[in-house]
Simulated scan of single mutants.
Amino acid sequence: MAYWYNIATKQVETDENRSRNDDVMGPYETEDEARNALATARENTEDWDAEDREWEDRNATWDDSDLED
């Protein structure tokens, strides 16, 4: 069973009662993961922002040779 977090209602939903709009985040494997969806998203965003700052601090440039064919 998949779990979803509804950001409008702040409730965990399952496939059986999931809203069919853009207000849901998921799917998650457990109810607890869904319940913590906003915290997880916040942590991920903070990590990505830190990576971006590190990238900018190094004055890194894009190198196409890093891409796989």
Rank of each mutant, 00 (worst) to 15 (best):
D32A: 15
R35Q: 14
V12I: 05
P27V: 06
V24F: 00
E46L: 09
E51W: 14
T40A: 13
V12G: 03
L67G: 01
A41N: 03
D15A: 03
A60K: 02
A2F: 01
R58L: 15
K10Y: 10
N44H: 14
M25D: 09
A60C: 02
N44P: 02
T14R: 03
T9L: 11
T14W: 02
S65R: 07
E31H: 12
R18H: 05
D22C: 01
N44C: 12
P27T: 11
N17T: 05
I7L: 03
A39L: 13
Q11P: 06
N44R: 15
E16S: 14
S19P: 02
E33W: 10
E16L: 05
N21G: 09
R53M: 07
E31M: 12
D69W: 04
N44F: 14
D69Y: 01
R35G: 02
Y28F: 15
Y28C: 04
D69S: 02
W55C: 05
G26E: 07
T61W: 01
E43N: 09
D63G: 04
A34S: 06
V12D: 05
T30D: 04
R20A: 13
Q11Y: 03
E56R: 15
A50F: 13
R53V: 08
D66K: 00
D15G: 02
A8P: 00
V12W: 10
T30A: 09
E33A: 14
R58N: 08
N36Y: 03
R35D: 05
A41W: 06
T9W: 06
D22Q: 09
R58T: 06
E54K: 15
M25I: 14
D63K: 06
D22R: 04
N21W: 06
D32V: 14
D63Y: 03
E13R: 07
W48M: 09
Y3Q: 09
D64I: 01
N21V: 02
D32G: 15
W4I: 12
D66G: 07
T14L: 00
E54F: 09
V12H: 05
A41E: 13
E46Q: 15
A2Q: 08
L38Y: 04
D49V: 10
K10R: 12
E13I: 00
E46K: 13
N6T: 05
N59D: 10
R53L: 08
M1G: 10
Y3P: 01
E29V: 11
A39T: 11
A41M: 08
E31C: 13
M1R: 02
A50V: 01
A37G: 12
E56P: 00
Y3L: 06
